[in-house]
Amino acid sequence: MEYYLNLQLKKPYIVVGDIHGCHNEFKSLIGVAKDKYGEDLIVISVGDTIDRGDYNLKTLLYTIELYYQKEYYEVKSNHLNKFVRWLKGNNVNISYGMQKTVSEFLALNKNLQEELREKIISYYEALPLYIVVNNNVVVAHAGIKDEFIGRADKQVKSFVLYGETTGKYTEKGFPERKDWTKDRKVDENSPKIVYGHVVFDEPYINNLCYGIDTGACLGNKLTAYNPEKDEFIFIKSEKVYFTFED
């Protein structure tokens, strides 16, 4: 059963963009954020913690560890969704970026594979589709429309995992995405919406929507946003881990 999480936080928190296996950058970001906001900081992830980077399983297991320590929350996302479907034995198209995660998994001994398979599947299946924080911020992987908030049906799941496309394709063969933030009507009661999925060079802010996937795996930077302070934290990528030309 899909659901969304209504989270009431009294501790400081940040929302982190798509990590994509950039483990070192993620750990550095948490360190900087804790220095800035305190050791009791809560980290919320927009998802896509794996694929494309060099430390995919390491990143995933670290997030699961933080989750069980009650320091971390995550929403469902398309990359982890696809990996979980593969772990279940479903026939999925393994892209180059996903192949890095699959290869890491297959390099493990069989006993460890089975142990992690169950651990990862149960972790992912318990994740919410999106998180409403303190009634004034919504975190969703690819974003969410105001009329979807409070729902957890198939239409909402499709939107929060994949966003909205035009039906056309870019020169590189990727689906052309609609900027759903342009049509949003906001007033004094509108929540901030923080999302990832679509890569920007810098955080994209429009109509109280904050796109914070800044291409960490592409050699740019990993971004976190503090909605309460309206502040960003950036960690420069250590290297280019992935390009769409591969």
Rank of each mutant, 00 (worst) to 15 (best):
L5R: 12
Q8L: 14
Q8N: 13
K10M: 13
K11W: 09
P12T: 06
G21M: 02
C22P: 05
V32I: 13
D35S: 15
D40M: 11
I42R: 06
I44E: 09
I44M: 03
D48F: 00
D51R: 08
E65K: 15
Q69C: 09
S77C: 06
F83K: 09
K88I: 10
K88P: 02
G89H: 06
N90S: 15
Y96Q: 12
F105C: 08
L106G: 02
L106Q: 11
N109L: 04
E118M: 15
Y124I: 01
Y124E: 05
V132F: 05
N134P: 10
N135Q: 15
N135I: 06
H141V: 02
A142V: 02
G143H: 07
D146A: 08
F148H: 14
I149N: 07
A152E: 04
K154G: 07
V160S: 01
G167T: 04
K168G: 10
K168A: 13
Y169E: 13
P175Y: 05
N189W: 12
V194W: 01
V194F: 02
Y195H: 14
V198N: 13
N207R: 11
I212Q: 02
D213W: 06
L218D: 08
K221M: 05
L222G: 01
T223H: 00
T223N: 01
K229R: 14
I235E: 14
S237V: 08
F242R: 04
D246V: 13
D246S: 10
